[in-house]
Nucleic acid binder design. Structure first.
Length: 554
RNA sequence: UGACCCAUGGUGUAAUUGGUAACACAGCAGUUUUUGGUUCUGCCAUUCUAGGUUCAAGUCCUAGUGGGUCAACCA
């Protein structure tokens, strides 16, 4: 039992081998390298968990480095948001936050070294010409005359680029690798381009900026990253990554790729998310239906649940589409332990306990969480008239309907057993009132009535109940993979009912609930106090429903 | 007309590295329960195809099939 062999995923195996061969003296340093040009989403959480947790598992650390080499898309606002999200997820990065822009001087020196080694050249070709000369994946590219420029001339031109003597797009610095490589990225990749743009950190100091391929590996190397874990889409960059490290003769960081995580109903393309926000399909980046980390948080998903989910999803190089059910199961698993229970009635119907004395009420004790005594207790007021859910009464009920129906018994949670005597419909034929008697000797915890009802209902005293708003959230899309349909726009799959607003009546103890606080509304689901809540009106997001084996058919 | 990555129940992963295909989620049935929640139990269902190596192949080799990826002065 104790010696159960723990299985390692393929990255853990690599790291284990590296440690046992004393590569880097057994040191493990990973990094999470976002570009500060947007908010983190569910897809990022996988990369975050992998990098931070693997480092921790092997006694190492994980750097947070902002890959900020494109001044026109990046902003300090996103730096702050990303840091906040990572901390919320419960991770602490190694030392100070790092920035690729802190390495601009070093990167520039690397470039000059490449030029002096005859391995880089300045090319004034237009983007179209460069693209054309690159060939296609199935046909080799051809070099141009600038490849053979002299070292002195290249050096001179690069200085001019750096000094701002040339306009944007006039020329680029390229690595001289192999224009006939079957790997397109090895066909003399661009190292530097001219951009007379203000950088949010370096200001106007630079007018040339390194490209990803000339910044990422070198930044890893500068930080002595041992294992640079990234998603599969970068696999073709690895030869470039290695080529620069080899030719610069710098610290040999190693890139390892894994498949990104795709989750049903959630999209992770920034462009597509922007479409949702920009088009008003959601209220913003933190709309609880969005796949961003801040949206999931607002919806009530605990950080622990998201991490549990990432762990359960595993680690491979395969394409995947993970069922939304797995995510929800993780959320329920965490919330079941941590969320206090409360009673809230949605779509209420009045129930009158006809033999309960008018004008009287009593306080009934209730556990906040039956599975966790430390969660404490609260008191719930009961009076003659209460709200119950409309769904909990049926005139002609099937045998398996364990709720209210004329002649049947049912328990009010934390209170007494009721016997249903009758009901009244309004003129439209809708249920208006339900009439019951209660067994005074059936009080919860002191039941000597001998009555054994099949079901238990939640309820709220009409006199004491407080109104709130409930936002019932569904998938934003009607299709589990809305962006996978060739020729069809994502917006064709928008779910028009992805958010439904309804009124709820809550037990009075909930009035002191604070933003972000999570509850299980008995028999309903898990709910979280939304940030839109005000002093006098609480708003709850439905985080996830409870599982239910009762399915009323037709 | 190229290169690279991948292929195990419905889904996601595992298999002591060549030795009885297992875990989780979902589904179904039951148990427990003052939540049709929770708990617990059981059931269902798996190695892409064809060759080869081997006493033995999910695992190694070859070919095929299928899926994915690769061209931005983005990262």
């Amino acid at each position: 039992m104790e010696d159960k062999k723990e299985s390692l995923n393929f990255i853990e195996q690599i790291i284990t081998e590296d440690i046992s061969s004393e590569k880097h003296n057994g040191r493990v340093l990973t990094r999470f390298p976002p570009e500060p040009n947007g908010y983190l989403h569910i897809g990022h959480t996988k990369a975050i968990c992998v990098n931070f947790e693997l480092a921790e598992k092997f006694g190492g650390a994980c750097n947070l480095r902002f890959d900020d080499t494109n001044p026109t898309t990046e902003d300090t606002e996103f730096v702050e948001a990303i840091k906040e999200d990572i901390e919320w997820l419960g991770f602490q990065w190694n030392g100070d936050v790092k920035f690729a822009s802190d390495y601009f001087d070093q990167l520039c020196a690397f470039a000059e070294q490449m030029i002096k080694d005859g391995k880089a050249y300045v090319d004034p070709s237009t983007p179209e010409e460069i693209a054309q000369q690159k060939g296609t994946p199935s046909t080799p590219g051809t070099g141009n005359k600038y490849r053979d420029r002299s070292i002195e001339e290249n050096f001179q031109l690069f200085q001019e680029m750096k000094e701002g003597k040339h306009p944007d797009g006039a020329m680029v610095l390229r690595a001289k690798i192999d224009m006939t490589s079957p790997n397109m990225l090895m066909r003399d990749p661009l190292m530097y381009r001219i951009k007379h743009a203000h950088h949010y950190r370096t200001g106007d100091k630079w007018c040339i900026y390194p490209m990803y391929d000339f910044a990422h590996g070198q930044s890893d190397s500068i930080e002595h990253i041992t294992h640079s874990l990234c998603s599969l889409e970068f696999i073709h960059h690895r030869p470039v990554y290695d080529w620069f490290i080899d030719n610069l003769e710098i610290f040999p960081s190693r890139q390892i790729e894994f498949s990104r995580m795709n989750v049903e109903y959630l999209i992770t393309s920034k462009r597509k998310m922007l479409k949702l926000v920009g088009g008003g399909y959601v209220t913003g980046w933190d709309d609880p239906r969005m796949p961003t980390v801040r949206a999931l948080k607002r919806k009530g998903y605990p950080a622990k649940a998201i991490r549990l989910f990432c762990d359960k999803v595993g680690m491979t190089k395969r394409e995947n589409l993970i069922e939304f059910d797995l995510l929800e199961s993780c959320v329920r698993e965490i919330l079941n332990e941590t969320a206090n229970r409360a009673m809230v009635v949605e779509d209420p119907v009045k129930l009158i306990i006809t033999n309960y004395p008018e004008g009287e009420s009593e306080m009934l004790p209730a556990n906040n969480n039956d599975g966790d005594e430390s969660a404490g207790t609260r008191e719930i007021p009961l009076s003659r008239e209460i709200w119950i859910e409309r769904k909990d009464f049926m005139e002609d009920a099937p045998k398996k309907f364990y709720r209210l129906s004329p002649g049947r018994n049912v328990r009010l949670k934390h209170a007494y057993i009721l016997h249903c005597e009758g009901f009244k419909n309004n003129e439209e034929g809708e249920l208006e009132e339900v009439y019951c008697t209660y067994y005074p000797n059936s009080k919860s915890g002191h039941d000597v009535s001998g009555v054994k009802p099949k079901g238990t209902l939640h309820w709220v005293s009409i006199e004491h109940g407080v109104e709130c708003e409930i936002r019932n959230l569904e998938h934003l899309f009607t299709d589990p993979a809305p962006d996978s349909h060739e020729g069809k726009d994502l917006l064709e799959f928008i779910n028009p009912d992805s958010i439904q607003y309804s009124k709820g009546i809550m037990e009075p103890s909930l009035v002191s609930a604070t933003k972000g606080q999570q509850f299980q509304f008995l028999r309903k689901g898990y709910y979280c106090v939304d940030t839109d809540s005000t002093e006098d009106r609480l708003i709850f997001n439905r985080t996830v429903g409870l599982k239910s084996s009762w399915k009323p058919k037709k």
